[in-house]
């Protein structure tokens, strides 16, 4: 391997001089080529995402039942701040986000490093096992979660029998514990999903760097923080942003496990949007306004994440 490497470098050097000249004449040309790579996606996303997004934005200044919409100016935006359900949804979603995303990212990163160890036995089995939650049907896993955390569920039996609790905790009927269950459920379902991104990215990290570090006496933990994390930074950024978006739009888990309850203790913004559009007499205008709150939040959080990751060079 190393032989090949040096050979290529030897060849590279003289050729590179020639290339620079050609490169200059082609610089203009190459810039254009770059656009050709991205143009189809730009057009498609404009048609299928931005155009409807603009429509939705216009809708956020309208209100009314179903198709009887009329312009109400900023009334929807004002309504937001006096709407207790919205405030509950925003608070819950923020709590989910702040606790769940870091928890999941760290866990997924940790698992993927463990599973990337070439000397580990049963790698495939562990990988498949940990990936399974995200293909397990929502119906199945919500039934299971409700069963596990039910008053006479396994968790309670464990807690009571081993003396951790004097009596069974009604997890799903308690505002605090219901949130915990939801956070566990989201983490359970999506950790394996994020792990895949890390696993694939880890293949791109040059093994020789680790060898060099080992020779320098770095232990596993130092290797993790000084090599793995910096090398995977682009993907960690990617998963942080996509997980933030995912959690801000969280819907399935909440609807299926607690249905937003008890009371509004676990209702999410997306569930509220759904309720406004389909469960209640539809008010697509107000629903759009609530949607744009998510957009604004994601934009702000993404800018912060990009900044922290130092993407802007």
């Amino acid at each position: 391997m190393s032989q090949q490497l040096t050979k290529k470098n030897e060849l590279d050097l003289p050729l590179r001089h020639k290339e620079t000249k050609r490169q200059k004449t082609n610089l203009y040309f190459r810039k254009k080529v770059g656009w050709l790579f991205v143009i189809i996606s730009i057009i498609a996303i404009t048609i299928f995402n931005f155009y409807p997004m603009v429509q939705a934005f216009l809708l956020s200044f309208q209100s009314g039942m179903g198709s009887n919409l009329e312009y109400v100016g900023l009334a929807n935006w004002k309504r937001l701040f006096g709407d207790p359900t919205f405030i509950a949804a925003l608070t819950n979603t923020s709590i989910f986000l702040l606790i769940q995303v870091p928890l999941m990212i760290v866990l997924a990163l940790f698992l993927s490093v463990l599973l990337n160890d070439p000397t580990l036995k049963f790698k495939s089995f562990f990988r498949i096992a940990i990936f399974l939650p995200c293909v397990t049907s929502l119906v199945a896993y919500s039934v299971i979660f409700k069963y596990l955390f039910g008053v006479d569920g396994i968790i309670n039996q464990f807690l009571v029998n081993f003396g951790f609790a004097s009596q069974a905790v009604n997890f799903l009927a308690d505002p605090f514990w219901a949130k915990v269950v939801i956070i566990l459920a989201i983490t359970w379902r999506w950790t394996g999903y994020n792990m895949i991104f890390y696993l694939s990215a880890l293949q791109n990290v040059d093994k020789s760097i680790y060898e060099a570090a080992r020779i320098d006496g770095a232990n596993a933990i130092q290797q993790f923080f000084q090599i793995t994390v910096p090398m995977l930074k682009p993907i960690i950024l990617f998963t942080s942003i996509t997980s933030t978006i995912g959690t801000l739009q969280i819907f399935d888990e909440v609807v299926n496990i607690t249905n937003g309850g008890p009371g509004n203790a676990t209702i999410s913004i997306s569930q509220y949007i759904y309720n406004l559009s389909f469960k209640y007499t539809p008010d697509f205008g107000y629903a759009s306004t609530v949607s744009y709150v998510i957009v604004i939040l994601v934009v702000i959080l993404s800018i912060i994440q990009f900044r922290v990751a130092g993407e802007k060079k």
Binding site: T85, G263, N264, N275, Y280, T281
Partner: peptide, 12 residues
Amino acid sequence: YAIEDILVTGMQ
């Protein structure tokens, strides 16, 4: 259903 959701919270 809109009122019921409000009442569910109230019931809690």
